[in-house]
């Protein structure tokens, strides 16, 4: 069975259908299946590793005076669902859709 480590996926380039750069993988979203195991749901893709790595967007709320700054740093953040992944290459992950069709909301993942 082929395997991959999360750390090797984090930071990998992501390009869209036309080869345009979307960003780098900031995080991997997983979803629990009925049998209790976790399966891949998609990638959080962004351009500012700083804001991405700290984990803002999960339980971490940006502190008051930095709201704007962090929102600005995360303005390129997109969610790439597994369904829209065309190919996971050694260097680059290709999406099967255009970058304009990707939304920022990874939390819209069906539960």
């Amino acid at each position: 069975m082929p395997t991959v480590t999360a750390s090797s996926l984090l930071g990998r380039e992501v390009v869209d259908r036309s080869g345009e750069r979307v960003g780098a993988v900031h995080d991997i979203v997983v979803r629990r299946r009925d049998d209790g195991g976790y399966e891949m749901a998609g990638f959080v893709v962004g351009r500012s590793a700083l804001a991405g790595r700290f984990g803002y967007g999960a339980t971490l709320a940006p502190p008051t005076p930095l709201h704007g700054l962090l929102a600005w740093l995360r303005r390129h953040e997109r969610y790439l669902p597994w369904e829209d992944v065309a190919d996971i290459g050694e260097e680059v992950i290709r999406a099967s859709v255009a970058s304009a069709d990707l939304t920022p909301a990874w939390r819209a993942e069906p539960r």
Binding site: A58, T59, P62, P63, T64, L66
Partner: peptide
Amino acid sequence: ANDRGYLGDRVNSRFTNIVAT
């Protein structure tokens, strides 16, 4: 100190955040 995953509603107050920034 701003992570609700750890602190629930005991995260930094707005005032603390401003001074800390």
